[in-house]
Each structure stands twice: as structure tokens, then as C-alpha cells.
Design a protein around this nucleic acid. Structure first.
Lengths: 150, 150
DNA sequence: TGTAATAGTACCAATCTGGTACTATTTATC
DNA sequence: GATAAATAGTACCAGATTGGTACTATTACA
């Protein structure tokens, strides 16, 4: 379905939760799980990844927890997906050029690359804050702007 | 990975093959499989789906085969993905509103919907012919045009 | 009537995914 | 220090999905 994995989906929900309070306080995995109503072990797993990938800062020990590394409006959805799922690629030939045995015959690769770029430019143009607030209507603001935003 | 399934990937490769000859001749599954170097049973399976979904016309019996239902520049990549994978939805709440048990707490749904639209508007703006030829550079032609194309 | 094609299912093995469990390490607090 | 509360790092498992095959039925040309 060209579907994100649930893990990534949850990651975005969790980060949106972190972004909601502007003061960037730390929250423990337990707290985040309760607030977002997601299973705690899953939340732990995801927050670990997000910390490793540098989207969250972590603090170990008692009274430890996680906090956003920067404000929500400076974290893009594309960035989060990248953190959870590795390099963004809609087809194998984008992720690992030369490894697809059809590549010599196929001839679509460079154009796939463009499609890939367009899709992920769209995802990079959305920020966490866009998700939590109501962000500008794409019709009203014009599609060009949304895609060209960085 | 926000990755298309191989089936969809193959479907696009196959349709691109059909689009290459402008006169819209019919080709059998066997022929398409040989030309595109994809496994025949897989090709058969995919062509059946594409015919059922109305992107190919089929002709049974000896000398039968498949042909594009309309010219390549009028078939969008989004349409193909839809045909192969059903309604396009990056998250569960887009595909089946109300069924996700987190929906009441989550509050991201309407914004996911926007993201979904943006991604698939991008996919709808690409046509089969864009894939086979070299299509206009998105920078040069301006992103707005690509996204607003239908 | 024979042959070459699509239509429709049903099936299977292998991989991926969602989710859990366990141990090690770190750190605030008493 | 001892303790408790937190993250870090793995390893694991069952079920769903995916890539791929096989088989039978139907259609239509020659």
C-alpha cells in the first residue's frame, strides 16, 4: 500500500507528543506511552532508535527521559521517516544502484529517482508542528510552495 | 521503507514496455515477460490485475494478448499504484477512518490526510511516458506544475 | 477440433513486522 | 554506598505479508 510501517507511524505520533509542549521538557518512555496510549515496550524501542538517530536527546538514570533535540517546526516528517526506516527509496534501484539485475534492461532508474525526490521533497516540506497544529491549506497556499519548501 | 511492492514495481516496468510502442499493439504475457526479463508466472498474474482494473484491454484465445487502454502520456503512476495496491494510504487512519483505536487521542488524522494528498498528487503528476522518455527537469519546469498536473 | 492465449484461484516458502523479554548500564536521591 | 528509576542493547517469537508457482476453466482463432 505504499504504507509506512506502524513503527514509523508511532514514532511520528510520539514525536508529535514531545513537540506539543513548547518548553522541550524531558519525558520518560513510560509517560509517553501512557499519554499516547501506545504499548510501552514498543515505545521504548522506538524512542531508543530516535535517540540513536539524533532526533531525541536522552538522559539516563533516575529522573531521566527523552526530549526533542530541536523545536518541532524544525523537524521534518521526511527526517523522521529516514531515522526510522533508513534511506528513503521507493524502489530497490534507488537504494542500491547496480544491484538490481534488471537495471541494464529496465532503463527507468533515473526517472524513478526523480519520482523519489518529488515524493520525499513533499515529506520534507512537512514539519512536526505542521502535524500538531493545523497547517496551511495546500490549495490556498499553492502546491508549488509546499513542494519547494526545504 | 515506504517502498512499493515488487509487484507494483514490475507492473510499472511492464506498462512502460507496452507504452514504448506508440501504435498500441497487443502483446502476450509471454512476450512481455521475455522482453522485460521478468518471470512469466509473475507477469501473467500482474497483467491479469491490470486488465481487471481497466488499465489494459485483454483479448483471449489464440493470438490474444494485452494492450494499453489509452496512450502512455494519459496514464499516471499514481493510477497504476492504485490499480495494484488498492486505495492509496500512507497510514491506516487514511484508508479506514474510525477504525484506528488511537484516533480519538491521536488528533493527527486530518493532517495525515494532507500529507497523503501531497504525496499522491506528486505520483499522479507523473505519467508512463514521463518514465520511458526523459521527462522535464522538475527544477527547470517548476515544481508547481508537476504537482498540479492531473 | 486443436492450440494458444487469458481468467480465476489456491497454494507455499521466505521474509518482514509488530510486539515482548531480558540483561547491562547509568544516574539521582536518600 | 545502596536503591530505585531510567535508558541501551539484544535476542526472540508468532503472525502477516510478499514474491512466486501451479492448476483448472474459459475463450477464440485457424
Amino acid at each position: 500500500m505504499i504504507r509506512m510501517s506502524k513503527e514509523t507511524d508511532y514514532a511520528i505520533v510520539l514525536l508529535a507528543y514531545f513537540a506539543k509542549d513548547q518548553d522541550g521538557l524531558k519525558h520518560s518512555a513510560r509517560e509517553a506511552a501512557m499519554e499516547s496510549q501506545l504499548p510501552l515496550p514498543m515505545v521504548r524501542k522506538i524512542l531508543k532508535v530516535l535517540a540513536r538517530e539524533g532526533l531525541l536527546v536522552s538522559h539516563r538514570g533516575a529522573k531521566g527521559g527523552y526530549g526533542l533535540v530541536r523545536r518541532g517546526e524544525r523537524i521534518s516528517i521526511g527526517e523522521i521517516i529516514k531515522a526510522m526506516e533508513g534511506p528513503l527509496a521507493v524502489t530497490e534501484c534507488i537504494e542500491a544502484p547496480g544491484e538490481c539485475r534488471h537495471e541494464p534492461v529496465c532503463g527507468l532508474r533515473t526517472n524513478w529517482q526523480r519520482i523519489n525526490e518529488i515524493v520525499f521533497e513533499a515529506l520534507d516540506s512537512m514539519t512536526l508542528s505542521d502535524l500538531t497544529g493545523s497547517f496551511p491549506d495546500p490549495i490556498a497556499s499553492g502546491p508549488g510552495e509546499l513542494v519547494s519548501l526545504q
